[in-house]
Design a protein around this nucleic acid. Structure first.
Lengths: 352, 352
DNA sequence: CTGAAAGCGCTTACAG
DNA sequence: CTGAAAGCGCTTACAG
């Protein structure tokens, strides 16, 4: 028999110092690196955040240890301590099949090149929850926010201003942005398309559009410009977002049933326009002779494959880039508030 | 004269307690809410994280104060303290014009419904920096990671396994995933398209493809299946990502210059296919009679508007949903490792 | 159902 | 160029 009977001796759990380790033993900490490298944690911190202030050999030694151990600093801790999260929030309705995704792409690339990461929040098309989404986002303490559109509740606007971080609103236009703005006027697009139709000699313009804020702004410009020309009745088919080819395909026959003499239709998106074009073909309506169709977005697809389509080109990438730059300028201590109208262009291939 | 001359008396900076406030006085803290509500900070914390454990009246009172003050908890602090970041990282090549954006959309929606936020990291098409991107991402201590593809360096794979968080690889197939997988076989797609071409009686198949890993896997399946049928020479035009309509349009003439008798071409994406279709038209080649064209992606655009195009349908949304579910199951304590082949379908309208 | 104490892993501001 | 002390704003684990 051995001299001790381990199983008999009760283990005094209380005697063991209560470990307060919570995440488990997995995580490497800055102190682990510091110990191995024979420096203080502060020096390790500097290696990551201000390498120029560290002696070359020290730098090298610490880096070797970091590499060897596979240490990755904890930015939750770093952010809490420094009050700099290095996070930028982007709130967009959707990234699926949309021009917004180009904006996000370029925005995100630009931000990450500058050392920031992008927290993506998808708001859908309901404005209801934008504010609770903002709360969720603000809980990460982002250093800047990109917003889509300019239609926000007063409470959201005020809260965002109180937070004191730079904000860019995008993809729309207003005289009273929360902070900065990079966008264009949907209303003016409606006006421009109306003028295009008028110039073509359209007698009975119609509209197929989703019911979101920005589509409604285009509609308003469209209708008001037509009203100036004496056309007060505009046939409309309003569809629920998200727009799709299928939606456009089914909307056109409905529109023409209400108003058989419609000879030019402004669609809320290229997808809708393509659907409408398909429907027109099926109905034997010559495009653009009998029926002119104008979309919105200028997707490469649409314009390359549907030469008889007119559309409105908007530069989503430029919006992403300008918005990122505006934010970065301010984060670098710049005082200027960017206000950029990127404009748009009605692109018609049917006449060229 | 007043009894004191403030400007004369030197201000003893040392005497003032060194304020360690760094973020400035702006931020509301949990203690502010606690004080106003007459409870301890712990109770306020519970109101957010475990409301069921708080007495109804206390709950109500605290919520009122939160509302009134506009308090938003600091998740940097919360995450550090609890070792739960509530963050999920998604690393994808791009979100612009791509099926990945559908995946991200659904993934993000599903995750946010479950109380997580998505940190989006765009890797581009270079594998070079995927590892440094991963470091950046891991510094936020995400609780799970979505990866695109299965081609990762050993070091990345090992590191990710060491971190011990659930990982889903997507959009590809392998026998040896890092952890979980939701995808499909690009090789098998190549095989299937080859078989389609063979069934159509193609004598001289060709390929227009980008050079990324997954496109190359499709190419391999395509070539190997054709080789089995005795066709060892396959004309190819390899293009640099990202694919676009323009690229496809310029690639087809090059391909046909090398191999004028090509009668069926497998394109790496629908965009390339559309470009090729445009070029074929311009060259007076009947599609699919003289030249069959097959794309990849089944974009609604492509199939609705180009009835003579064949394509390969892949369900990006399903990938996003399944990947999210796999991660969530594991985060909820599930032990199962998802391994899902979502498959694909060759969709040909030219024969229907 | 509620709270006092300790600690999460960093960085700031100071001093040398 | 480097470091000891204090603190960022929460939550855990315990106790009652």
């Amino acid at each position: 028999m051995p001299t001790a009977k381990p199983t008999d001796a009760p283990i005094d759990l209380k005697a063991a110092p209560a470990r307060r380790t919570r995440g488990g033993p997995k995580g490497l900490r800055i102190t682990d690196v510091a110990a191995q490298a024979g420096v203080s944690p502060i020096t390790v911190s500097r290696v990551f955040n201000n390498p120029a202030s560290v002696a070359p050999e020290t730098l090298e030694r610490v880096r070797q240890v970091v590499q060897k151990l596979g240490y990755v600093p904890n930015r939750l801790a770093g952010g809490l301590s420094s009050a700099r999260s290095r996070l930028i929030a982007a709130i967009v309705p959707t990234v699926a099949h949309s021009l917004f995704s180009e904006t996000i792409q370029v925005f995100s690339e630009t931000m990450s090149r500058a050392g920031y990461e992008v927290l993506l929040a998808l708001s859908g098309y309901s404005d209801t929850n934008e504010e609770s989404l903002l709360d969720t986002v603000l809980s990460r303490r982002p250093e800047g926010v990109l917003l889509t559109g300019v239609a926000h509740t007063d409470s959201l606007r005020e809260r965002l201003r109180n937070v004191g971080i730079p904000v860019v609103e995008t993809w729309d236009m207003t005289d009273t942005p929360i902070d900065m703005l990079v966008g264009f006027s949907h209303y003016q697009i409606g006006v421009a398309v109306a003028e295009r139709f008028l110039a073509r000699g359209a007698k009975r313009p119609g509209l197929i559009s989703a019911s979101d804020v920005r589509a409604l702004a285009r509609r308003a410009g469209f209708r008001e410009r037509l009203a100036q020309a004496g056309m007060t009745e505009v046939a409309e088919a309003i569809v629920a977002p998200p727009s799709s080819v299928a939606t456009g395909k089914s909307a056109l026959p409905r529109l023409l049933q209400d108003a058989p003499d419609v000879d030019a239709v402004f669609c809320g998106s290229d997808l809708l326009a393509i659907g409408a074009l398909g429907a027109a073909r099926r109905m034997g309506l010559e495009v653009p002779g009998r029926l002119a169709i104008c979309g919105f977005g200028d997707l490469e697809f649409a314009t390359e494959t549907m030469p008889r389509l007119t559309t409105v080109r908007v530069d989503g990438m430029r919006i992403g880039l300008s918005a990122a730059r505006a934010l970065l300028d301010r984060l670098d201590g710049g005082l200027e508030r960017a206000f950029v109208d990127v404009g748009f262009r009605v692109v018609g291939r049917e006449s060229g």
